[in-house]
Design a protein around this nucleic acid. Structure first.
Lengths: 339, 339
DNA sequence: CTGTTAGCGCGTTCAC
DNA sequence: GTGAACGCGCTAACAG
């Protein structure tokens, strides 16, 4: 068995008794090629098992048909599903996807973006890291099309985001509707605009109801435990419900409650971001899910437009969350509704 | 602002008053270049903001410095962490990673492999889909190095696998040690060798203890519910413990128990594959975790060796699982140990 | 140590 | 409708 080399377009041309450029035209789609010649080419291709060399083509045309995706990580349903959807869409449209993660570190993010740029991807879908310096990112990217996913990247960059304000507001109002006297919001320590919007939504709902907004920022598990337990167990106006602002916060809160031996069933709870195991804990977690597939499709379509040269003004899509009502909010029966 | 074109190696050569190949040599690492010239080149590079064109280089040298990773999906800790680790290792070694998923479908798997081949990746780390036709896969791949990850791909392909037999055996023995009279194994419907090995381990442990092995294969939720509840609630020798053979099975089992209103605390439970939320359910789930980082590193190193031409005989690495003892097995205090 | 030359495989003028 | 020639940016030979 020899190291048989891949056939090139020239091999095909010879075998079919035509010029290389004719093969090229035919391979690339219904350009004007006589039926007879087309047939000969087809045969030659099948015989040799020819496949166009992507590298050479990319080098020549300056497009790679590759999209970069940069996520913080992929260990949750939201990102996992989004990735799957993006890949599917990409495949359908003749693109392949290069996934990178930045682990929420701005520095790594820069490296990964540089790597994507080196790979000459035609466009990028990214979830900006928490401490992202927007100008820095844009400078690095040059004129590679980008769409910000789930988090904003300044008003000049296309984005698809959750209606964060509304999500948090409705979640809060829902809790309020269950007669919770005092709701604490637990937030992540990141300076992210979506988190800020969520906080605003929460605050607005609370103040409209004449209640006092109270937020605990989770920096570290020990500190969270102290503050959260204090809030829930103090004598004077203890908190009776929790609004968790994100996936990782929910994880931390659940750990904390467990450590403090506070039963989830004794309090109200809603978490923004859906959890795969929401149904397995007691009581089942009510969450505000981000529609990941919809996010992904929107982002992909937007990017696709940009890669084919669309020069419209930046588009900012805002999508509604889905209230997944289970039991931790206080409801008796499960249901879901789009906001 | 014009569409300024990227500087090429020739631009650099001119600016530094040297030949293109000298620049090439210098750029690529400590080849013999005079200090004086090296300095001039550095300056030119910095001034022009030159970056080598990966595509052109790859076309020329026939290597892309890209690795393909093909997973069923990424929505769980095991695959998520493995991916992260592989990417990190890759970055350190100057590779970039192209991640694809096959959703456990053999057909999609073939497509994705074809796509990886088109991208001319230097090597592939893959988790073969359940119904994989090994010969078909190998034929498609040609002589691209491959390492099978978490599941075997025939004895001719490098692999890194869990010691599945041992894992299941010890898990079963542990349950037995808690005086469970009757343990059912619940398995996934896939014809995967690791699942078979796990079953064998379970069976061996049961028979050694003079017990009867009983397996339920999860095809569909309705059917699982019927069979599992029957096993747990029958009068004559009801099952008192469950051994779940994989991540997805555990998810299904937990759902089922919930639907049947059977409290996890009433029975014994161990699941192979760790769950992110193991601590959040009651009682906390005892699991047999696959050391994902270790898996990933081993697979990467093996592949790296192959990409640089190692022609040794196929290597099959077997790694020990980690018993993550929490409470569902019957233990009072948490601990973990490597098998 | 350095520069010149010749492709890697393909798409694209531009004549025919 | 078709083929010949050129070049995308880079590296590997080879002279010098």
């Amino acid at each position: 068995m020899k190291e048989t080399k891949r056939p090139t377009i020239i091999d095909v041309a010879h075998a079919a008794n035509v010029g290389a450029s004719t093969v090229s035209r035919h391979v690339r789609g219904g350009k004007s090629v006589s039926p007879e010649v087309a047939r000969r080419i087809e045969i030659a291709i099948a015989q040799l098992g020819y496949e166009p060399n992507t590298l050479a083509r990319s080098l020549r045309v300056g497009r790679t048909q590759t999209l970069g995706v940069l996520f913080p990580h992929v260990n949750n349903v939201f990102f996992g599903n989004a990735l799957r959807t993006i890949q599917t869409e990409a495949r359908i449209n003749g693109f392949t996807v290069m996934l990178l993660t930045h682990q929420e570190e701005a520095k790594l993010q820069q490296e990964q973006l540089a790597s994507l740029k080196r790979s000459q991807v035609d466009g990028i879908i990214m979830v900006p890291a928490a401490e992202t310096n927007v100008a820095q990112v844009r400078a690095l990217l040059g004129n590679t099309p980008v769409v910000a996913f789930d988090r904003s990247l300044g008003s000049a960059v296309d984005s698809v985001l959750l209606d964060n304000y509304r999500a948090a507001r409705e979640a809060t109002e829902h809790l309020l509707g269950h007669r919770h006297s005092h709701i604490v919001a637990v937030n992540a320590p990141y300076k992210l605009q979506p988190l800020q919007s969520r906080f605003n939504g929460y605050k607005e709902a609370m103040e409209t109801a004449g209640k006092h907004a109270e937020t605990i920022v989770w920096h570290e598990s020990e500190q969270l435990r102290k503050e959260l337990c204090a809030a829930l167990q103090r004598k004077r106006e203890p908190a009776t419900a929790i609004l968790s602002m994100s996936y990782s916060v929910t994880l931390a809160v659940l750990s904390t409650l467990r450590e403090c031996h506070i039963a989830l069933s004794k309090i109200g709870f809603i978490g923004i971001d859906d959890m795969e195991f929401a149904n397995f804990i007691h009581p089942p977690l009510t969450t505000l899910a981000q529609p990941s597939e919809q996010f992904a499709r929107l982002a992909f379509q937007q990017l696709l437009g940009r890669t084919s040269g669309s020069k419209e003004k930046p588009v900012h899509v805002v999508v509604a969350g889905n209230m997944m009502i289970r039991s931790s909010c206080g409801c008796k029966s499960a249901s879901s509704r789009s906001l």
